[in-house]
Design a protein around this nucleic acid. Structure first.
Lengths: 203, 203
DNA sequence: ACACGGACTGACCGACCGGTCAATCGAAGT
DNA sequence: ACTTCGATTGACCGGTCGGTCAGTCCGTGT
């Protein structure tokens, strides 16, 4: 967190960015002051302005760097994923685990949506389109039902996974929640799998 | 918005509350200043302190009043809902329409979650327990599958509906989004209905 | 007619906000 | 040795923050 050497701009930048990220994602942009960020990174306010220009620019930088991780993870997921059913299952698993291991990302997404951010929307759109592409392929292959539009299938997929993280914990015990997480993932998958499979008109 | 008569404390309180709600839900607690609320409600800062005591207390009051609507709507929904399949469908429809018609409530929920609010958690828990009760009854009646825990079925239900509102609009056209909303609700229901029905082991 | 008390105001408070600036520091180039 | 230049600092700026307070306004009880 604190800058190691006196004149190491890279380390200073990194320390500032780390402190800013922690505080912005915890309390939001408006709820965080430059002085707090400075204190948290062991440098002065002035240096932050020297490196990033303004509070807004720093926030933009935090969003950019944090979103890059998410984008890369998602894109690599799409690259390795095919259309086979077990790959869709695995895709849900990977997405779920990513959100579980990166709660900061979940919080950032919430902040972005609340403040009506426009810096990341094009990247979001890109990811969404790639996902829709995959789903359409799976529909053509007869793996997914074709009577529901692909974008909506994607939304249900995302909604089912995110549900676990958007909901207030309520069950205080964190360890217990970790155990429950896998159980939820399993349940969500079972419901999703039945729900999106090509309807077997049996009843 | 603006207080009507000079000495009408009820109207003043209401005007302040309305202005505070609009601003808090739009920009968040930290992003809203007392002066803005005062300007928006046509009274002075001092009067706000006279009626509500502090900024935090005002925010608490906004949350309380806004959450009460949500709580009442949900509870009345539970009261009228039985366990028959078409009632579950109707329940999803009502919940969806409520969120669609009360975007403020959606935003408030997001703020509550981000700031780790504890004022409303007990009411949330109450609603959740009531919902789980209903789902368990439906499971006992053989309408919902029993191999998935009731709390998880509730979460998927909520997640599927909320997915439509949590996702960044991206499709700029609001009118078009309204049309799409019904289509999404229909799709989400179809997926949910297939996913949570008692598995017909036919394939 | 008058006193009382709550509604309401405008001036004011210290603290903190984001941001600026001149000055210092220190490593690298010559 | 001297220059140069980015990194870094602390003092400082005007403005706004949430909050206070003394006092005015005005309907009501007596």
């Amino acid at each position: 967190m604190t800058a190691a050497r006196r004149h190491d701009p890279e380390a200073s930048r990194a320390a500032i960015l780390a402190s800013a990220q922690a505080l912005f994602l915890d309390r939001g942009f408006a709820g965080t002051s430059m002085s707090e960020i400075a204190k948290g990174s062991g440098v002065t306010k002035s240096l932050i302005h020297h490196h990033f220009g303004s509070k807004e620019a720093l926030w933009r930088e935090v969003k950019r760097s944090r979103f890059a991780d998410y984008y890369e993870q998602q894109m690599s997921l799409f690259a390795e994923t095919g259309t086979a059913p077990q790959l869709i299952r695995r895709s849900m698993e990977v997405y779920f685990r990513f959100l579980r291991d990166n709660p900061d990302t979940v919080r950032m997404m919430s902040w972005l949506q609340l403040e009506g951010d426009h810096d990341c929307t094009d990247m979001v759109a890109e990811l969404r389109d790639a996902g829709i592409e995959r789903i359409k392929a799976a529909q053509d292959a007869g793996i997914l039902r074709q009577d529901v539009p692909a974008p909506f299938i994607l939304m249900t997929f995302l909604g089912l996974v995110q549900a676990w993280f958007h909901e207030p914990s309520a069950l205080g015990d964190d360890a217990r929640r970790d155990v429950e997480a896998d159980a939820y993932l399993d349940s969500a998958w079972r419901i999703f799998a039945e729900g999106v499979s090509t309807p077997a008109r049996s009843r």
